[in-house]
Amino acid sequence: MAIQVTGLKKSFGKVEAVRGLNFSVPAGSICGFLGRNGAGKTTTLKMLQGMIHPDAGHATILGLNIADPAQSVQIRQRAAFVTEEKGTLGYLKVSQVIKITKAFYPNWSNEIEAKLLDTFEIPTDRRVSKLSKGGQTKLSLLLALARGAEMLILDEPTEGLDPAATEQLLQSLVVMSAESQTTVFFSSHQLAEVEQIADRVVIIDKGVTVVEDSLDDLKHNYRRVRLVFDATAPAIPGARIDGRTASLLVRHDHAIDELRALKPASLDIDSVSLKEIFLDSVKGDRS
């Protein structure tokens, strides 16, 4: 496994940000990390990077322990992180930030650097703080993608990017994953983007994992079932009732069998989007 997280916990005062998180990410996969605002995504990513010390639990990246300072350095040598704060060193010029960053990475790709500078149209002689928010995001991504990392851990990588740049980034991630088996673990609120490139998803809510599966399996297991009854639809837990019609999301085939037992006049089964799965996963009260 590229990432293995077991029972990870972190509190800030009385606020439990992460409450025993468990998930794993296979090497070479593209894994979307989803959750509502405040679910604990950024805290988790910062713990993986070594910016925040976990209170309890254990996590490894590329087999290295995140809590061990020496191993954490090795993690940052082999994995690239882009955090939610993408301003890097705002008081320096773009060229200076690139010069500083590339000095740490022997596998730095000048080819990717030049390509992304051109594609993202980043002016190298401008101060980072003078770049637009999107420009700062693009620079952060350039610094992450060009360092030849085995793994990319990205927090909201498309935040502030225009649609064209977003598409270029997503394609770059897919190509890197396919060509060099780079593992990509990224958080996003843009479910369509996750659905476009991810082969796995981890959904967390209130600091715990609620879904962890391959996207194909998720979509295979989840079904939208629409039942029409001869009379008013009976009360079905989790279903939206509208006169004779009931509509609900089910996870397993045996649930569909249970619905058939209600003897509806008709029963239609449709595939669902990641958005529907996400909303269904985070609607419960886990406090």
Partner: peptide, 15 residues
């Protein structure tokens, strides 16, 4: 800006 700089520096492979 300082927190962004801290995040960047802490992403580098240095103790």
């Amino acid at each position: 800006q300082n927190s962004a700089a801290a995040a960047f520096m802490l992403s580098l492979p240095v103790r």
